[in-house]
Design a protein around this nucleic acid. Structure first.
Lengths: 207, 207
DNA sequence: GGAATTATTTACTGATTGGTATGAAAAAGG
DNA sequence: CCTTTTTCATACCAATCAGTAAATAATTCC
């Protein structure tokens, strides 16, 4: 059984609030005072519950990934073809990047891109997340090639890199004020590239 | 004639050093101590020569744009066709994003993306630069339509948005360690999209 | 009820932030 | 030479940064 005074705030809710501030302002742009204010708790409570700023950020990233990332990533597995998978994933992300009442763009892409050398660990953490996303994208194309819905000629590395780059670009567009329809139009464009992209393969003529 | 003690350091060189630090660490990730150390001058000299941190940053952005941005943007005007213009621009940027001895990616894209509310002006400043780049891209497509090398059916907004998004994504790829060849491969992919992209026009079938 | 345990509040820490006051040093004009 | 003008280096400023010490308050176990 639990001993001592029970915590009198909702840890999960407080973490959610922290996530939103980090998502909006980034890791270094968010101060402890910003966090305690948004979470509705005092500083020592934050440290007791989450350890330190960096640990709180990592938990916030995990929560973000769970809420916003995993659902969009899941279709990568469930969709029947690689093309369907990637298009649906892109459109799902376009939706999450432009939700009203939430910061635009992807927290994992935006929240710790540049900064002081002493926060390199935080940036690397997000960079690893992005790397995994790229690998998942590429893996889905490889799977499509194995299952026959993507031509054997395709260069999975190139196709995956292309769509990963576009996806990360969408976060910046969203920060710059692009609407969901704007992002959808860009995705339309990217999807028209699918057929020639998977067709041309590794030996692409240059210029 | 000049009166008084002459300045004892090369202002342009100092600005260049400041640019490199801002480019590497971003606006908020760079402290005045970082700057004075990199510039080889003391704090009051910095303030006398540049005003304040934000003014110095804006000058650094201008310098960056002059050195890294303008040359790549120029081909947008000089190239004979819209397609040539955009492809060459993308490849020029891929080169600048991966120069050895310089920070990877684009300073204008990366250096002030998220942060505290009190630095909103700085972020808006870079956002305006990005907006102009997008408009220039779109304008080049419109020109191509007028000159006949791009079909009248094309949707300049969509095509421009697509390549602008990809270009901004390339900065993140570069920060994540992508080589010039990696970026070139992604650009290869993006250019295979050109024909279907300019062909399909505004009435694109959805899904 | 009392002891033990944990959370909360208040106030504080040393370090660092962007930005300056001050006076010495170095040049030019007369 | 001496005054004027500007820059330089040292030292400093209040504010904020992330993180804590200490005491009080609230709960459970016995």
């Amino acid at each position: 059984m639990e001993r001592g005074r029970p915590r009198n705030f909702d840890r999960t809710l407080a973490l959610r609030r922290a996530m939103e501030v980090f998502w909006e302002r980034g890791y270094e742009g968010t101060s402890l005072s910003d966090l305690t204010e948004a979470m509705g708790i005092e500083r020592p409570s934050l440290y007791a519950a989450f350890g330190c700023k960096e640990a709180l950020f990592r938990e916030a990233v995990d929560l973000y990934n769970e809420i916003e990332g995993v659902p969009a990533q899941r279709v990568l597995e469930t969709a029947l073809t690689a093309r369907q998978a990637i298009e649906t994933m892109l459109r799902d992300y376009a939706a999450t990047y432009t939700q009203v009442g939430k910061p635009p763009g992807c927290m994992i892409v935006l929240a710790a891109l540049l900064g002081t050398p002493q926060n390199k660990d935080v940036r690397d953490h997000l960079a690893r997340h992005r790397r995994e996303s790229r690998l998942a994208l590429k893996a889905r194309i490889v799977r499509g090639m194995a299952e026959g819905d993507v031509p054997q000629t395709a260069d999975a590395e190139r196709v995956g890199g292309f769509y990963a780059t576009l996806l990360e670009g969408l976060s910046i567009q969203a920060r710059d004020g692009a609407s969901r329809l704007d992002l959808e139009a860009i995705i339309d464009g990217a999807m028209t590239a699918w057929d020639p992209l998977v067709a041309c393969g590794k030996t692409l003529p240059r210029r």
